[in-house]
Computed example of a mutant assay.
Amino acid sequence: MEPDAKFWDGIAEKYAKSPIRDMEGYQASLDRTRGYLKPTDHVLELGCGTGSTALLLAQNVQQITATDFSTAMIGIANRKAAEEGIENVSFLGIDPFDPQLTTETYDVVMGLNFYHLLDDMGAGFRRSHDLLKPGGLLIAKTPSLGSTAFFKRVALRAAVRVMQAFKKAPFVDFVRIEEVEKAVVDAGFEILETDNVGGTVPRSYLVARKI
């Protein structure tokens, strides 16, 4: 179920220093996400990496619990939070199924560039549903490698397999945008907004309410 924590631990420092490739798209996603957040919200972010998104959104909510499989990533996130003096974000090196995360606790669950890294994406959405309060929101941005053009998709699959063979890439699910949306609905959500935000790889940005 869980992504390769050892892989992410190994690249944590390099990842933290790497610039965001599509800064315009990242900022647009942040702005859209802020539009759904309230000052009283307790937000859970799954797959927070080195914490950049959680720290940028901290001022918009009451509290953020941010988790990642990689304890090295979480170490960097805690360091950044201390340097920036941000106290309403808690970083945990756990997976989404850890009992420390209790059901019907969170107003919003975010998974930005996360669910395609699970070998059972549907289980990830179902767990997110369980963690949300009634009527809570899921905000997900999911690279949809399965929605790329045929020849590009074949080339990407081949490249990823070679990199995985040399431990240079983690598990990646080649999901299509429509598969992401179906998995969200099947998990018990009503989709409020969905959009292909494009870029080098199609990305499904969606917001859904727990029903």
Rank of each mutant, 00 (worst) to 15 (best):
R21M: 10
R21V: 13
D22R: 11
E24R: 15
G25H: 14
Y26W: 15
Y26V: 05
Q27V: 14
Q27G: 03
A28Q: 14
L30Q: 12
D31A: 14
R34V: 07
G35D: 13
Y36D: 01
Y36P: 02
L37V: 08
L37D: 05
L37T: 10
K38M: 13
P39F: 14
T40N: 09
T40K: 08
D41G: 02
H42Y: 13
H42F: 11
V43P: 04
L46G: 09
G47F: 07
G49N: 05
G49I: 11
G49L: 11
T50N: 11
T53N: 09
T53Q: 12
T53R: 12
L55G: 02
L57D: 10
Q59P: 07
Q59L: 04
N60P: 03
N60A: 15
V61R: 02
Q62G: 06
Q62H: 06
Q63A: 02
Q63M: 07
I64H: 03
I64W: 03
T65I: 11
A66I: 05
T67I: 14
T67W: 05
T67E: 09
T67H: 08
T67N: 04
D68K: 08
S70W: 02
S70Y: 03
T71C: 07
M73P: 01
M73H: 13
G75N: 14
I76T: 10
I76M: 04
I76N: 09
A77C: 05
N78L: 05
R79T: 06
G85H: 01
G85T: 08
G85K: 01
I86V: 06
E87F: 01
N88F: 03
S90I: 06
S90V: 04
F91S: 04
G93N: 04
G93P: 06
D95W: 00
D95V: 08
D95K: 06
P96M: 13
P99H: 03
E104C: 01
E104I: 01
Y106F: 15
Y106D: 00
Y106C: 06
Y106W: 08
V108C: 02
M110K: 04
M110C: 07
G111P: 03
G111L: 10
N113H: 00
N113W: 01
N113P: 00
F114V: 15
Y115A: 09
Y115Q: 02
G122S: 13
A123E: 15
A123R: 12
G124I: 01
F125D: 11
F125L: 07
H129Y: 13
L131V: 12
P134E: 08
G135V: 06
G136R: 05
L137M: 12
I139A: 07
I139N: 08
A140M: 07
K141M: 12
K141T: 12
K141G: 15
T142S: 07
L145Q: 08
G146C: 08
G146R: 02
T148F: 02
A158V: 10
A158Y: 09
A159V: 05
V160K: 14
R161Y: 12
V162M: 13
V162S: 09
A165K: 11
